[in-house]
Structures are given as structure tokens and as C-alpha cells.
Amino acid sequence: MHLFLIIIVLSGAIAFRLSWQGNAQTWGDRWHSALFAFLLPPLLLLMTAIAIAVMGYRGQMIGMETGRLSYYLAIAYLVFVLFSGMKVLGDGLTSLKMIRSYPQIKLHLNRQEIQARLLEDSGLYSAQVGFFKPELVISQGLLENLDEEHLQAVLNHEQAHCYYRDTFCFFGLGWLRRITPWLPNTESLWQELLALRELRADRWACQQVDGLVLAESLLLTVSAPFREFASFTAEFNRPYSRDRLQERVDALLSEPDRLDDFKWLDWSGLAIALFPLIFIPFHY
């Protein structure tokens, strides 16, 4: 019976991922559609494994015998999930340790004092790196090649990532990506969420700076060498396809969707992921 439950849940997760089209019209609809499609299948699989591990391999469920195979599969998957989480966390802590070895500087822009870690590199790079309280990393090349107006635009964009807790949230999303890379559309959904994350940060930054200035900053930095420290990094100039880059520039030069449509998911919809847990009382 447990093996039958695994097959049903796995088939449903795959079918749900395949049904994602990514053709919503507004940013808010695209964000919610991609986030829900990204989150639900791995959470459903995780809850199924937990339910089977709790029930064990002895006894019956709804009058049908349970078996060892499904139990061992569930335990193996939970061990894989645990070690994947430890690997993601370990990579993140290693990156954070490296970042904190960089010299700390203070920037004075627009009557603001901003602390940052200086990356001694001639490339144009900026990012928020860290978990819940990330640190700003900027390169020497960025300070030398951007004037104060364009540098302020870049820093406003990075402040948006702090405002939305993007590094912390994408640390969790990156873990789910790692434990289900074989599900359909995992990479497509990941890239969609990254692109929408940057669009949202751009829109937030445009409340403080001119969109044209931010677009110019993006075009100046997009060809710079890319550094990816960990899954919890939010970079201003991460590499994009030509279409993604064009979408971001067009959004900066136009009047996009409202920011209040760009909220995190209504978590009540993810209650579906708890479905496998309802079988626990029926195991005896």
C-alpha cells in the first residue's frame, strides 16, 4: 500500500510540474505560478516520505499489507534530503567565511553610510551574500568604473534584496532544487524565479532612483565576469539569456506591474502537500 502511495504522489508531482506553462501575463501572476509549481511537488514528496517513515513497514493500511521496500525507499530519500541540506548549508557557510575575510569598507552615498565587503577585483560586481542578514559585497572595479549616480542605483537594487529577504528565501528554494533536480521543469522554474526576483528588486530600487540610470548600470555590469558564491547569493549582474536581459531592461524603461502584486505565496495553497499525512491514522 505504501508503494502504491509513492507511485500516486510521484505521478501527481510529475504531472503538476508538466502542467506549468509560465505564460501568465502580470509579474505577480508569474511569480505566484512559478513559486507554487516549484514548491508543491518536492514538499509533497517530502511529506510522503515522512508519513511512510512514521508508519513503518509493519502492519496494514486500509486493509492492505505494507512492505519493507517502500519503507526503505522513504528512509533513503529522507537521508538524501538531510545530507543535501547539510551540503547546501556547508557550501553557504564556506562562502560566508570567505566573504568575511574581505576587508570591510564604508561608502557615503546620498547622505547614507553603507557598509560593504570589498572584493579586490577589476570586474564590475555587487551582491548580497548571506542567510537572514546578508552582507553587501562590491568589487574594486565597480567603485572605479561607476559614477556616484550609477553606483547608488546598484546599491538600491541590492538593498531591495535585503528588504525582501531574498537570500534567506532562495537558500531554502535552492535546497528544494537540489533534492528534486529530476522533476520536470525544475531548472526552468528556478531561472524564472531568479529573473522575477531581479525584476522585483529593480522595481523597488526605482522608487529611489531613475529607471534609466538603473538600466544603464545593468548594461555596464552585465558583461563583467560572474561569481557565484552560494545559492543564497543575490547578484545584480547575474548572467541572463538575451531575452531575459531585454525583459529586465524593458521593464526598467516602462511602467511595470504594481509591487503589491509581487508578494510571497499564499501559503494556504501549499496545504495540499500535507495530503500524505492523513494516511497515518489509517495505519495499524
Results as ranks from 00 to 15, higher is better:
Met1Gly: 06
Leu5Glu: 15
Leu10Arg: 05
Gly12Met: 08
Ile14His: 05
Ala15His: 02
Arg17Thr: 00
Leu18Trp: 09
Trp20Met: 00
Gln21Tyr: 00
Ala24Trp: 12
His32Asn: 08
His32Lys: 12
Ala34Leu: 03
Ala34His: 01
Phe38Asp: 00
Leu40Ala: 01
Leu43Arg: 01
Leu44Phe: 15
Leu46Arg: 03
Ala49Arg: 11
Ala51Cys: 06
Gly56Leu: 09
Tyr57Lys: 15
Gly59Trp: 08
Ile62Pro: 02
Met64Ala: 14
Arg68Asp: 06
Arg68Leu: 11
Arg68Phe: 05
Ser70Phe: 11
Ser70Glu: 12
Tyr72Ser: 09
Tyr77Ala: 10
Tyr77Gln: 05
Val79Cys: 12
Val81Asn: 02
Phe83Asn: 07
Val88Pro: 12
Ser101Gly: 02
Pro103Glu: 10
Ile105Phe: 14
Asn110Glu: 15
Gln112Gly: 09
Glu113Arg: 05
Gly123Thr: 04
Gly123Cys: 12
Leu124Ile: 14
Ser126Val: 07
Ala127Asn: 03
Ala127Tyr: 10
Gln128Ala: 04
Gln128Trp: 03
Gly130Ala: 07
Phe131Arg: 13
Phe131Glu: 07
Leu136Ala: 03
Leu146His: 11
Glu149Gly: 06
His161Val: 01
Tyr164Thr: 12
Asp166Asn: 10
Phe168Gln: 11
Gly172Met: 15
Gly174Lys: 05
Arg178Cys: 04
Arg178Pro: 00
Pro181Met: 08
Trp182Gln: 14
Leu183Asp: 02
Glu187Val: 03
Ser188Tyr: 12
Leu194Ser: 04
Leu194Tyr: 06
Leu194Ala: 08
Leu194Asn: 05
Leu196His: 02
Leu196Met: 06
Arg203Gln: 15
Trp204Lys: 10
Ala205Thr: 02
Gln208Phe: 14
Gly211Asp: 01
Ser217Tyr: 05
Leu220Ile: 06
Thr221Ala: 15
Thr221Ile: 04
Pro225Glu: 00
Phe236Ile: 08
Pro239Trp: 06
Ser241Val: 01
Gln246Glu: 09
Glu247Val: 01
Arg248Lys: 03
Asp250Ala: 09
Ala251Asn: 13
Ala251Glu: 12
Ala251Leu: 07
Leu252Asn: 03
Glu255Lys: 10
Glu255Gln: 07
Asp257Tyr: 01
Asp261Glu: 15
Lys263Tyr: 13
Trp264Val: 07
Trp267Lys: 13
Gly269Ser: 01
Leu274Asp: 11
Pro281Tyr: 02
Pro281His: 08
Phe282Glu: 11
Tyr284Met: 10
